[in-house]
Design a protein around this nucleic acid. Structure first.
Lengths: 180, 180
DNA sequence: TAATTTGTACAATAAAAATTAAACGTTTTG
DNA sequence: CAAAACGTTTAATTTTTATTGTACAAATTA
């Protein structure tokens, strides 16, 4: 059957679209998602030009997208002997991708808020104990409490992030569903 | 001290900016983040107009932002007796917000991919067993394997999402850091 | 019931982001 | 060493997204 290969291609396109849309949910551009999808189904490493042809984008765009995918480690670069071009393959382990992506966000979040907290905390502590303005004292105390709550939130997310990263989480949530 | 209140205001602004930036990481617009930040530090429920004045945006914009914040349950609507306007307060529990947001994304992701899988699976199964075209059979088999891997990925994320939602996760990752 | 107030919908505008074409610096090849 | 091949950078363009002003419907008030 000549058309069977085409049918497989069609099925792949459906799945590639779904993968791209999924990635859009998490904030990447549709093009980046599409490229990852194409690489996901590629039977062998693809060069920039291979990808460019398949997704019909400019080389510059593909190059930028690849940088993003490499940064998040959803794609890795490989060398093909005898070929000067860079080649790329998709990291197919969704769980690994998910964890990479997610841990990065959690750390970024913590870093942002903690930086602000460190700036605000001494000011608020000073005012909450020393100010002669009662309303300022009250406001400062309230804010300090919120601030401390946020710290314990990060304590929690960091425990989660660490266990996601080092695999401890799989003690509680094993990868393999029990067969029956 | 007259200026102490101003210092508290400044400290709040720093933290509001950090909160907004954090939310941007997770894909919301800076304006939405800013509004949440303002509500986070509000001492009482605020009306649309209150918010509009404080963030210097159009009423339409604030209204749209509120819809988004209500959908993700980061903000809730409350009624103030004797006032016709709607009033809003921020859900301050970061952990709750995080879980809400996150579980939603995981479910959305699963739904998208599963829909594509359901479309592709029967086609691929047919080809992989019945096709007379060997290369099509091989490709289809390969794709089916990937597809099954993705299903077990979702099995995992759904176990996690459910436990996040129903609080079981706190058995393994308790909220309170042990005091010492 | 007419006049106000409130929140939202909608079309138009403004702002931001992604995409491209062209130029550039490196590296490789002949 | 000159020419060609790669991949990236840059500035300009296109596309997308967010924001606004205006108009509207529903509810309230006088």
């Amino acid at each position: 059957m000549q058309e069977d290969l085409e049918k497989v291609e069609e099925a792949r396109d459906v799945m590639i679209s779904a993968i791209a849309q999924t990635m859009v949910i998490y904030g990447v551009t549709p093009s980046v998602g599409r490229i990852y999808g194409v690489l996901y189904f590629a039977e062998e490493p693809m060069s920039l030009d291979d990808i460019k042809d398949q997704v019909a984008m400019s080389k510059a765009s593909v190059s930028n997208s690849m940088r993003e995918l490499l940064e998040t480690e959803m794609v890795i670069k490989v060398w093909k002997k005898g070929d000067r071009k860079d080649h790329y393959i998709a990291e197919k382990d969704f769980l690994k991708n998910f964890i990479n992506f997610f841990v990065k966000k959690l750390r970024q979040e913590r870093s942002l808020i903690m930086k602000a907290n460190e700036q605000a905390k001494p000011v608020l502590e000073d005012i909450s104990t020393n100010s002669t303005d009662e309303s300022a004292r009250i406001a400062a105390k309230q804010d300090l409490e919120n601030l401390n709550n946020s710290i314990s939130y990060f304590d929690w997310t960091m425990r989660l992030a660490n266990d996601l990263e080092n695999g401890e989480i799989f003690k509680y949530y094993p990868k393999q569903k029990k067969e029956k």
